[in-house]
Design a protein around this nucleic acid. Structure first.
Length: 570
RNA sequence: CGGGGUGUAGCUCAGCCUGGUAGAGCACUACGUUCGGGACGUAGGGGCCGCAGGUUCAAAUCCUGUCACCCCGACCA
């Protein structure tokens, strides 16, 4: 490719609304152009990179035995009603109508469509197991799209679905996909971890997330320093504290805390450790208000709270009005002592291990000291409710937990019969009996990987592509080519030779000064750079520099191909 | 959905308070000089000042409404 014929629109200034480095660099390099909130045009440069990601994903999926297919992005409402997700998927589901007022959605995922296909195509256990995948545009109407293509509304995803007659077959395919994903992310040159995850809205029994490690990641990954335990924050269990709760030794006393509402303020004012305080959150579930109690230094894990039998379905923090109606008290002074008799009091295991603690007094400007469970405060149940913290004991008993940030680029789910049952997808087994299909589903965020790779690989000059993702293998920069016929001829000759080797070459024939040429090649992250100059021609050398090399080196022109061969995979 | 903010040239922004017919830098075009790390000069092209009403002799500027986008929060493969 010649730069004179390639729309290379690099800019020096960073667009104002970009925050993440990957977003800034993709805009500066001219890979993306925003069309609307969470909607992006991929330029020829950007698309070259995304196609590279796709190629690796496709190759490894094919190698795993899965088969590519393609389903529509627009999906009829009726299918989504069969699984109940027309309602349950919520606002993320973009609903649309055609000219006949028929309702459709723009597919955020394709379980319904693929299960519909399977129930009409699959008749016998002999056709199983089967794994089909597609690489297709998805749309999720995110409440707040941000970070460029990292959390876009329209994005490219590889989604695979497997079908099985028995659990052993599903388990084997789940492992096969897990291994395939590990191969894909390794080939893409990404540093990643597979972590145990909650099954969330998709549902099912087992699940792993593949997280690319990056400080800017939106997800917290928990791992042990003493074993191979990993989990995402939602799932990571906080072990119960060792030892029994001490017996009460203090009197329950109501003390004045005129303006102190937060744990920090109260603990500083009363000169007690936040670890000796209990915070109480009032949550509204479908069956009314519920009190959740945590130790002062701990944070609620909403995913764990959502699994409580007292909080089926959706729940949110109660607002001031509701709380006032139930307790006659404003948030900030709420505690577990003397709550209404019909309000469940769910206590985290660490909070439940406290004696003589500080908590809200259930009246403005008051807190209790010397409070004790059972004696002063009713306990409905004791559960694990909190987010784990750095230094907590690992749930497997080996080592301590640490927390890193990650970007979710892949997710594997063992779905069981959830969708097949709802949609009546079954086959005949060996004994002639109808059996409901078991399914797995396996997603990779193809467009997100492009951003994740940049988060992990960049410097102050721009992007540093892992070789398999680079839009071009090497940049050929002839300096002041317009001034020298000799140089021009040499550049054209070398350009042709490099292409004949199978390399994807970007030759800069724009007749720019050297500075901008170097800057562009570095910004767009081309891994290898060759510079041709009069000086080099006279000396019989070509200059080479790798994107991450500290120094350039002069290579005898006759040996350049031999020099490049081990460095560039054609 | 709650809170905050911004819409002026392809990009980054000034002008708005105090109304008088639109600016800078980058990018783009032409010519000249320059030529190994984002050069310089000269001359150009490019804007319904988000949209719709209103006030006024006169609106980018004041008022009302509306739309879009961004940030923080809650939510989420």
């Amino acid at each position: 490719m010649r730069t004179s014929r390639f729309p290379l629109n690099t800019v020096k200034e960073t667009p104002a609304d970009a925050e993440l480095m990957s977003h800034k660099l993709m805009l500066r390099a001219g890979m993306l152009k925003k069309l609307g909130a969470g909607l992006y045009t991929w330029t020829p440069l950007g698309l070259r990179v995304m196609r590279k990601v796709e190629a690796v994903v496709r190759e490894e999926m094919d190698r795993s035995g899965a088969m590519e297919m393609l389903m529509p992005t627009v999906q009829p409402k009726e299918l989504w009603e069969e699984t109940g997700r027309w309602q349950k998927f919520g606002g993320q589901l973009l609903k649309i109508r055609d000219r006949k007022e028929q309702e459709y959605c723009f597919g955020p995922t394709a379980e319904e469509v693929v299960t519909d296909w399977a129930r009409s195509e699959l008749r016998s256990y002999k056709q199983l197991p089967l794994n089909v995948y597609q690489i297709q545009t998805k749309f999720r109407d995110e409440i707040r799209p941000r970070f460029g293509i990292m959390r876009a509304r329209e994005f490219l995803m590889k989604d695979a679905y497997s079908f099985h007659a028995d659990q052993a077959s599903l388990d084997a395919e789940y492992q096969n996909m897990y291994d395939t994903y590990a191969r894909i992310f390794t080939r893409l040159g990404l540093k990643f971890r597979a972590v145990k995850a909650d099954t969330g809205a998709i549902g099912g029994s087992a699940s792993h997330e593949f997280q690319v490690l990056a400080d800017s990641g939106e997800d917290a990954i928990v791992f042990s320093d003493g074993s191979d335990y990993t989990a995402n924050m939602e799932l990571a269990e906080a072990l119960p504290p060792a030892g029994n709760r001490p017996a009460p030794s203090a009197e329950l006393k109501l003390v004045d805390t005129p303006t102190q509402k937060t744990i920090e303020e109260v603990s500083a004012f009363l000169k007690v450790d936040p670890k000796q305080c209990v915070k109480t959150l009032i949550v509204r579930g479908e069956r009314g208000l519920v009190a959740l109690c945590l130790r002062g230094d701990h944070e609620i894990n909403e995913t764990k709270a959502a699994k409580l039998p007292e909080l089926p379905g959706e729940s949110v923090l109660a607002d001031e009005g509701e709380i006032w109606k139930a307790i006659k008290c404003k948030p900030g002074f709420i505690g577990p002592v003397q709550l209404p008799a019909d309000m469940p009091v769910i206590v985290d295991r660490d909070a439940a291990a406290l004696a003589d603690f500080v908590c809200g007094g259930n009246q403005a400007g008051k807190h209790y000291t010397g409070a004790n469970w059972d004696r002063d405060a009713r306990v409905t149940s004791v559960v694990d409710l909190r987010k784990v913290q750095v230094g907590d004991a690992s749930p497997d008993g080996k080592g301590k937990l640490d927390i890193a940030r990650g970007i979710e680029v892949g997710h594997v789910f063992s779905l069981g019969d959830k969708y097949a049952k709802a949609m009546g997808a079954s086959v005949l087994d060996q004994t002639g009996k109808q059996v409901t299909l078991l399914m797995g589903c396996y997603g990779i965020g193809v467009s997100r990987i492009v951003a994740a790779a940049i988060e992990q690989n960049h410097d102050e000059r721009g992007i540093i592509w892992p070789a398999p993702l680079a839009p071009f293998d090497l940049a050929l920069l002839p300096l002041n080519m317009a001034k020298s016929e000799k140089l021009k001829a040499a550049a054209e000759k070398l350009y042709a030779e490099l292409q004949a080797m199978g390399y994807q070459v970007l030759m800069d024939d724009r007749d720019l000064r050297p500075g901008p040429m170097f800057a562009d090649a570095e910004l767009i992250g081309v891994p290898h750079r060759l510079v041709l100059s009069e000086r080099g021609l006279d000396a019989g050398t070509i200059e080479y520099k790798g994107r991450t090399d500290a120094d350039k080196q002069d290579i005898p022109a006759a040996q350049i191909m031999e020099f490049l061969k081990p460095r560039i995979r054609s």
